[in-house]
Design a protein around this nucleic acid. Structure first.
Length: 198
DNA sequence: CCCTGATTCGC
DNA sequence: GCGAATCAGG
């Protein structure tokens, strides 16, 4: 693959949108994130610093700087909110408080989108699967909300309002938001739904 | 571990 | 110019 105008354009566009190099690489296809990053640099749009990008403070010794620069005039020549369309996702799980968005809005934001499980509610799931889940929960990595990634099981365990709340965190299956065990109880063939005899 | 971008350097 | 390997964080 070569950097055709179109590809470069898409690259610029996506980079401008704050997409990560890997995402861009995935989108373009035929290139690795390294290739993308390399290109980005060659194009000179590495950091989207406000105009200028002076950069280059190698490692110059701070040279003392005794008086601790008191003046300090302005310092925010960035009144440009940039219409980034960050898909600040609408609280996937509703772990009530607890979740503190430690991630600087920009970029990424776990796609997650997937519907979170209805929690072990009144499900009539195969006892088999349930047992498996209980078993797996012992091995769970008990990750916090922020530790979740695209390949960690996002199955929540416990009461979000308690300290006893965490996410499975085991390796999720390709394409699925959960690990094997949880995929098992999360996606029911829609048959065992049978109305329990009343 | 997973992921980021940044740099280097042989091609 | 290109991008894998490597580096430096989170």
């Amino acid at each position: 693959m070569s950097w055709t105008d179109e590809r470069v354009e898409l690259l610029k566009k996506m980079w401008g949108e704050g997409q990560s190099a890997s995402q861009i690489a995935k989108e373009l296809g035929g290139v690795t994130r390294n290739a993308v990053i390399g290109k980005v640099h060659r194009l000179g749009l590495s950091n989207r610093n406000s105009g200028g990008a002076k950069a280059a403070e190698p490692k110059e010794k701070p040279a003392a700087a005794p008086a601790a620069a008191a003046p300090k005039p302005a310092a925010a020549p960035k009144p440009k909110p940039q219409p980034k369309t960050e898909p600040a996702r609408p609280a996937a799980a509703q772990p009530a408080a607890d979740a503190k968005p430690a991630t600087p809005a920009r970029r990424q934001i776990i796609p997650a989108g997937q519907p979170l499980p209805p929690q072990p509610s009144a499900n009539e799931i195969s006892p088999e699967a349930l047992a498996k889940v209980n078993e797996v929960e012992k091995k769970a990595k008990k990750l916090g909300l922020m530790e979740l990634t695209e390949r960690t099981c996002k199955w929540p365990v416990g009461d979000p309002a308690t300290e006893d709340f965490w996410f499975c965190g085991l390796p999720a299956q390709q394409g699925k938001p959960y690990c094997e065990a949880h995929v098992g109880v999360a996606f029911q063939p829609m048959s065992s739904r049978r109305d329990r005899r009343r």
